[in-house]
Design a protein around this nucleic acid. Structure first.
Length: 287
DNA sequence: AGGCATGTTACAGG
DNA sequence: ACCTGTAACATGCC
């Protein structure tokens, strides 16, 4: 589920609820996530107030008094809040899926404000890592990341320099987190569609205008998605018990054999595989 | 039953 | 060094 916009939305909704709150207890139901949660995990976190929550790429970072907690949600990780008093679930807005099941609740953080922060992850590709907060600049996961898409430095100059003598296609370039960090398969497909660029084009062959347009569209799409509460999901339910509104904002992702969403175009969306990931594009609009 | 799924990493081979 | 493809991780859905 989570690409940059979804993580950003989670960050914002969590921050509102748990800023300055202390972790009073932790219950680990299953420590076998992508990396095993170590035995001293709870001991290092209990009684620590959460001072700040930030996001870098698809990572969430909890700044505690002495420690830094790095969280990645993998493909299916979810964080949500449960008010203990009445068992009311507070979504981290964008995704309270209808099919959350208790057996995939792997970690419970009991908070000093009467909430439980619950980590649920069907596939267990997500992870938690704990660091001393003086070592934050040495976190390997973060060190190798490229620019944030919203960075002012993410411009045509940077683009040109990065792709010089590179032979990979533009789809794979955008998926490359050392180039720009936070895009995933869905938003890459969308950005290329909006920018009318064929995913197989060699990245160094893009004109300056195309680069500029693509960069601009990436920023736009991500911002628009954040403002909608994150959209890389299939279904969600807005309030407990109600059936989910089905929202699809995608112009091209998942639309194989459907009409191109540009009204003037009569072609059908094609699906191909690029580096083992599905890619959708319009053979007419995306050149 | 088999293929596919929003992410990342490791490895083999060109 | 760069690039691509494949597999792995675990589970559910069609």
């Amino acid at each position: 589920m989570p690409e940059l916009p979804e993580i950003e939305v989670v960050k914002r909704s969590l921050f509102k609820m748990i800023n300055k709150v202390k972790i009073v207890d932790i219950k680990i139901m299953n420590s076998n996530l992508r990396y095993k949660i170590p035995n001293n995990f709870s001991k290092n976190l209990i009684n620590e107030p959460i001072l700040r929550i930030s996001r870098r790429s698809k990572y969430l970072i909890f700044y505690l008094k002495k420690k830094v907690l790095l969280i990645h949600l993998g493909m299916s990780g979810k964080l949500f809040l449960l008010r203990i008093r009445d068992n009311k679930v507070f979504k981290t807005s964008f995704y309270y899926e209808t099919n959350i099941t208790k057996r995939h609740n792997h970690v419970y953080f009991k908070l000093s404000n009467g909430f439980l922060l619950i980590y649920n992850d069907v596939r267990r590709f997500g992870f938690f890592k704990l660091y001393n907060n003086n070592a934050i600049n040495k976190i390997p996961f973060l060190k190798k990341l490229g620019l944030e898409p919203f960075s002012k430095l993410f411009d045509t100059k940077y683009f040109k320099k990065f792709v010089l003598n590179k032979k990979k296609n533009i789809k794979n370039l955008l998926m490359d987190q050392t180039f720009v960090s936070g895009l995933g398969n869905i938003y890459v497909n969308e950005a290329l569609f909006i920018s009318k660029i064929n995913p197989l084009r060699k990245c160094c062959d893009l004109s300056k205008t195309e680069m500029k347009n693509l960069i601009c569209n990436i920023k736009k799409i991500l911002k628009s998605s954040i403002s909608k509460g994150g959209s890389s999901i299939k279904d969600f339910q807005s309030t407990a018990g109600q059936k989910g509104n089905f929202q699809q904002f995608f112009r091209v992702y998942g639309r194989e054999n459907k009409n191109c969403s540009r009204i003037s175009c009569k072609y059908k969306i094609k699906k191909i595989r690029i580096s083992n990931r599905s890619s959708f594009f319009c053979p007419n609009c995306q050149i």
